[in-house]
Simulated scan of single mutants.
Amino acid sequence: MVDPVLELKGISKKLKGREILKNINLTINPSEIFGFLGPNGAGKTTTIRIIAGLVKPTTGSVTICGYSLEKEFSKALSRVGCIIEGPDMYKYFTGMENLEQFAAMKNVERKRIYEVLELVGLQHRINDKVGTYSLGMRQRMGIAQALLSRPKLLILDEPTNGLDPAGIAEFRQLMRKLAYEEGMSVFVSSHILTELQLMCDTVSIVKQGEVIKTAKVEEIQSDNVVEWQFEDVGKAKEILKSKLGLNVTQTKKNIIRAPIGKLTIEEINRTFMNEGLVISYCTAVGSSLEDLFLDLTEGDKIV
């Protein structure tokens, strides 16, 4: 058995009498990219702040690489690199000057700066001022800072905010390199569901302070989801919801999809025909993280 890089056991947090987190249990293994998502106000940022040692939980324990965050705070956090609410840099300094400042605070040898620059692909712009960097480059600089101390766990809160599609694709490739080639575990919170599905090995969905689902992405993609096209899409949605108890997503003007669980396509289509509906087409499709999220959170917005 491989020891986990991060373990949260029974984490709860009360603030002014209100329970923000309720019995959060999470496990992240070595070289795993772990996605954490939930609607606005679900407790994502509070959970991240607890892991990073910025907030104390009311109950429960956090263990990082075998060290208790409560009892061995410095040893536990020495294994962590994190970026919360964007990287913090001096924009009038060059990239190298920023990394040198950070390395001096962490007592990191100079050759490590060049190693992380190679990892994040910024070696050719390192002598330019950070103020001239694109958003994607600043994100890479932030990750370079976080990597200087050779963390076993990298924590990223909304790291792709504001990035264009090319920047997001580059970020995804970098995370895979860190996890699968460098052996780092990555804990990432994001509201871009399709990106988490493409990038992560495992995801957890949190709602109202509770983890309601943790699953491997490959398991989510194998779930049974069906897509239909109708002229009367409103009536079809009502049948799926009221008669069959399914959660429905409308993807286009006349197209809907739903995870059907243990029901068969034949049973559902027979119900449609008995109600006088004409099916233009019907097909089984791979489930998406968005389908699962909407199903479990009943359409709550994710932010």
Results as ranks from 00 to 15, higher is better:
residue 278 V to P: 07
residue 141 M to Q: 02
residue 241 K to V: 09
residue 142 G to C: 06
residue 288 S to G: 14
residue 7 E to P: 05
residue 51 I to E: 03
residue 292 L to I: 12
residue 228 W to I: 00
residue 275 E to Q: 13
residue 122 L to N: 02
residue 255 I to L: 14
residue 38 G to K: 03
residue 284 A to T: 15
residue 223 D to C: 14
residue 298 E to K: 11
residue 153 L to D: 06
residue 24 I to V: 15
residue 69 L to E: 03
residue 15 L to N: 15
residue 108 V to M: 02
residue 5 V to A: 09
residue 177 K to N: 08
residue 4 P to E: 04
residue 88 D to K: 15
residue 252 K to H: 15
residue 119 L to M: 14
residue 20 I to V: 08
residue 13 K to C: 03
residue 103 A to E: 04
residue 70 E to A: 10
residue 155 I to E: 04
residue 57 P to T: 01
residue 243 K to F: 03
residue 128 D to I: 06
residue 140 R to K: 12
residue 32 E to W: 01
residue 280 S to V: 15
residue 210 E to I: 09
residue 154 L to F: 13
residue 217 V to W: 09
residue 274 N to R: 13
residue 292 L to E: 02
residue 279 I to Y: 10
residue 191 H to F: 06
residue 120 V to W: 05
residue 16 K to C: 05
residue 120 V to C: 04
residue 86 G to T: 05
residue 31 S to L: 07
residue 216 K to S: 14
residue 152 K to S: 14
residue 99 L to W: 13
residue 72 E to Q: 10
residue 77 L to K: 09
residue 26 L to P: 09
residue 57 P to W: 00
residue 200 C to K: 08
residue 248 V to E: 08
residue 271 T to N: 14
residue 192 I to W: 03
residue 232 D to Y: 03
residue 176 R to V: 13
residue 208 Q to N: 14
residue 77 L to I: 04
residue 106 K to M: 12
residue 203 V to G: 10
residue 167 G to T: 02
residue 58 T to I: 04
residue 270 R to G: 05
residue 290 E to C: 10
residue 212 I to Y: 07
residue 284 A to L: 14
residue 197 Q to V: 01
residue 255 I to M: 13
residue 130 V to S: 08
residue 176 R to E: 11
residue 39 P to L: 02
residue 72 E to R: 12
residue 176 R to N: 14
residue 172 R to P: 00
residue 143 I to R: 01
residue 144 A to G: 01
residue 212 I to F: 09
residue 48 I to D: 00
residue 167 G to K: 06
residue 206 V to Q: 07
residue 63 T to V: 15
residue 100 E to Y: 02
residue 128 D to A: 13
residue 119 L to A: 11
residue 268 I to V: 08
residue 12 S to I: 12
residue 195 E to I: 04
residue 19 E to K: 13
residue 66 G to A: 05
residue 178 L to E: 12
residue 59 T to P: 03
residue 211 V to G: 04
residue 217 V to T: 11
residue 297 T to D: 08
residue 131 G to R: 09
residue 234 G to T: 07
residue 119 L to I: 13
